[in-house]
Design a protein around this nucleic acid. Structure first.
Length: 403
DNA sequence: GACATCACAATAAGGCATGG
DNA sequence: CCATGCCTTATTGTGATGTC
């Protein structure tokens, strides 16, 4: 995932030279030799496959792609610097010299690997290095920061609070670099970029596929990763920069200003059953009638599930027993087809074929059935042009949705 | 004066074996 | 499982020297 992250000191050197427009001066500032910086920059240029500076007698000036990268590198380093500071504070350590001097990419990689794996051996395997190597990097990091990063718990090795803070900044920092790499490639006309989208059930069925098709027409080389899962997991990945944005039902009420929710459209929930269902075609259904049948419902904690429960509770009716919780659209169809179960679907989850005869929308309109569908992303996220393009397709498609 | 380059030195990163 | 020692390999850095 975070392959090929360049040496942090090289990135620092790059930033200094970009600011000072002078290698020798930068060399004095960050205490390494002039030749080391020259080579570091060459290496970065090789890594990103483009020249980053115009060398002129009056100094080193960023090329167009150098500028692009500089913005990302600057954010990357700031994130890391802040992350180390916060982690040290959280771990009651003493803030020492410049944090960027004491940590390396491989140490951060080790840290990140340990976040998802509760043993050194598994973490090592997950990033294809040997257990001793990973172990050493991890302990070195701990040593350099002089705070506790790892502790033994009942599930194995866990990260301390301080370690989690650092790991999160590192992921965000690496993801800035990933985005920078993609922007540079875009500017070179290499369409190899990559987008990770977190998808909640609704969007998947209609709007997202259409937008993805549009995007792949204009950018055939693009690789796209659509990830689904429980909202909490997706949000977690979003906050750590693993996912670029989420699409689906908005939850609202974010405690912090860290996350933005952008409404694309409103959709309304309908109660649906198979076409030959006993309640299909009847008018004026009551909640009591609906409570007689078994249901397929969304996971607990989702907005649609809350609506489902509120619908009965407000009317003082017991919630039907024998619920099946399921978020797979295909499975829901099959459950409905084979039984008299009912479910909540929003208008845009029902396809044309289904409207023409496989599913029946029952004559009962839940209160407050309308809910916002939209995009969720980090406030400090800076989308690449491919990412912006995809979001614009989604916005355009939403505008044309007939309600 | 300021960057590039070269030969070599120094470190960092990684692996294997092996013992708690 | 984790931790360590010991060794190899890869990466980075230095200082001298070249080039424009």
């Amino acid at each position: 995932m975070h392959k090929n992250v360049p040496n942090l000191r090289h990135l620092r050197a790059f930033r200094e030279v970009a600011i000072n427009k002078n290698i020798s001066l930068s060399a004095e500032k960050i205490f390494i030799s002039q030749s080391a910086i020259t080579q570091a920059i060459n290496k970065l240029e090789q890594h990103f496959g483009t020249s980053l500076f115009n060398r002129s007698p009056s100094g080193m000036f960023l090329t167009e792609r150098g500028e692009i990268l500089f913005r990302r590198v600057d954010r990357c380093l700031n994130l890391l610097q802040q992350g180390v500071k916060d982690a040290i504070r959280s771990g009651n350590g003493k803030a020492g010299t410049n944090p960027l001097n004491i940590i390396s990419t491989s140490q951060l990689r080790a840290l990140i690997a340990l976040e998802g794996n509760h043993s050194f051996s598994m973490a090592a395997r997950s990033i294809n290095i040997s257990q001793p190597s990973l172990h050493r990097s991890a302990r070195e990091l701990e040593d350099h920061l002089s705070i506790t990063l790892f502790e033994k718990t009942n599930i194995g090795i866990s990260l301390t609070k301080a370690a989690l803070i650092l790991s999160r900044s590192a992921k965000l920092a690496f993801s800035e670099l990933r985005q920078g790499f993609e922007e540079v490639n875009e500017s070179l006309g290499i369409e190899s970029s990559y987008i990770a989208i977190g998808s909640m059930p609704l969007a998947r069925t209609y709007i997202l596929p259409m937008a993805l098709n549009q995007l792949t027409v204009s950018r055939p080389q693009m690789s796209i990763n659509v990830i689904d899962g429980p909202y909490e997991d997706l949000l977690q990945h979003l906050r750590q920069g693993d996912i670029d944005f989420l699409i689906g039902a908005l939850r609202g009420n974010f405690p912090s200003k860290e996350i933005i929710e952008e409404t694309l459209f409103e959709t309304s929930l309908s109660i649906v059953a198979r076409a030959g269902h006993p309640l299909a075609g009847q008018s004026e259904l009551t909640l009591e009638q609906l409570a007689q049948y078994p249901w397929v419902v969304p996971r607990k904690g989702t907005p649609a599930r809350s609506r489902f429960e509120a619908m009965f509770e407000q009317a003082g009716i017991h919630i039907p027993m024998g619920l099946i919780e399921c978020s797979s659209q295909i499975l829901i169809r099959q459950l409905l087809q084979a039984s008299d179960r009912l479910t909540f679907l929003s208008k845009h989850q029902i396809t044309l074929e289904e409207k023409q005869g496989i599913l029946a929308t029952l004559a009962y309109k839940p209160d407050h059935s309308s809910r916002p569908i939209g995009l969720t992303y980090r406030t400090d996220w800076h989308p690449t042009s491919a990412q912006k393009e995809l979001m614009n397709y989604l916005r355009d498609l939403s505008r044309n949705i007939e309600e």
